[in-house]
């Protein structure tokens, strides 16, 4: 049977790359005592697929891995047993058994279903964003002061700048691939922007959560977000197109924002945290988070 696990990846584990996370989970299932299904042949390997590989340096509350198991236990017990063999920085929060594809149905992987993802992007402490036009350079020590120039705090200034950036109809960037460069308008790929946790959560509650329901027999632990919290409190929530059809990385949005504001873009200054991954329901067009998706 195929099962889906939802897990958090945080702290020092953000430095572990995707391939190593795969190896880690292969070993973790064996430690937890669950026999997985293997591919046939002389070099058998576990049947395992991740929804959307997370880049090195990013943290997440919503990583998904689908795996074939020979047998399994109650979702609650599965989650507990797997968490017992996890290291700090990996924490399983959700589990459900996936519905088998009908005979004439094609097998689909989680990865092919992904269409959107939510991110929280925070400015790390120690990087200056006090005066946007002064650029953002790492401070030797300490934090950017919340000093008020022009009667605005740095948080307000950031929000205002980001709002005006997002208000543009056309945000064109140069997308670099191995072979070529092309200009792309990323504006349509950004479908939600929020600066406030309460606002973001209300939006979730009244939006995607309202329009879908949990899968029968699934289990989800109530957990705190593992996103790092920074004293400077400069942050933005975003929903971006993700997946094979259209893919926009939050780093690219921040780079475009910095370019727009004429601030040198420092990739180390921003902490990107993934909050959720969604698929788009073919009939209704609604977004469904992968832990609420039966297949």
């Amino acid at each position: 049977m195929k099962v889906r696990l939802k897990f958090q990846k945080y702290g020092a584990m953000k430095f572990i790359g995707h391939l190593d996370v795969m190896r880690y989970f292969q070993k973790a299932f064996r430690r937890a005592g669950y026999d997985s299904e293997y591919t046939k042949g002389f070099n058998p390997h576990q049947i395992m697929s991740f929804a959307a590989p997370l880049g090195v340096g990013l943290t997440s509350d919503a990583e998904y891995v689908d795996i074939g198991l020979i047998s399994c236990e109650e979702p609650e017990i599965m989650i507990r047993k797997i968490n017992e063999v996890m290291t700090e920085g990996f924490y399983v929060t959700g589990f459900h058994i996936l519905s088998e594809p009908a005979e004439n149905e094609k097998k689909i992987t989680a990865m092919s279903l992904v269409s959107s993802a939510d991110y929280l992007v925070s400015l790390k402490d120690g990087y200056l964003l006090d005066n946007l036009s002064d650029g953002m350079e790492p401070l030797d020590d300490g934090y950017p002061s919340g000093s008020e120039s022009d009667g605005m705090t740095s948080i307000e200034k950031f929000r205002e700048a980001f709002r005006s950036f997002y208000a543009k109809n056309d945000i064109t960037i140069l997308k670099r691939t191995k072979k070529s460069e092309m200009s792309v308008n990323i504006k349509p790929m950004i479908t939600l922007v929020s600066f406030d946790e309460i606002e973001y959560k209300e939006n979730l509650r009244d939006g995607v959560l309202y329009l879908s329901k949990p899968v029968d027999g699934s289990y989800n632990l109530e957990t705190e977000s593992k996103a790092d919290v920074y004293e400077n409190a400069i942050k933005v929530y975003m929903r971006l197109d993700t997946g094979s059809a259209a893919n926009l990385k939050p780093e690219l949005v921040m780079e475009a924002f910095c370019n727009e504001m004429s601030i040198p873009y420092n990739p180390y200054a921003w902490q990107v945290h993934r909050l959720e991954i969604y698929t788009r329901d073919e009939t209704s067009g609604n977004l469904i988070s992968l832990d609420r998706l039966e297949r």
Binding site: M13, F15, D20, T87, G89, P138, Y268
Partner: peptide, 20 residues
């Protein structure tokens, strides 16, 4: 973070391995 993200294989320096 800045140092760890700018060197090859940062996992060499973070510890936290299974059975540590």
């Amino acid at each position: 973070d800045e140092i760890l993200l700018s060197v090859e294989k940062p996992a060499r320096y973070i510890g936290g391995e299974v059975n540590m």
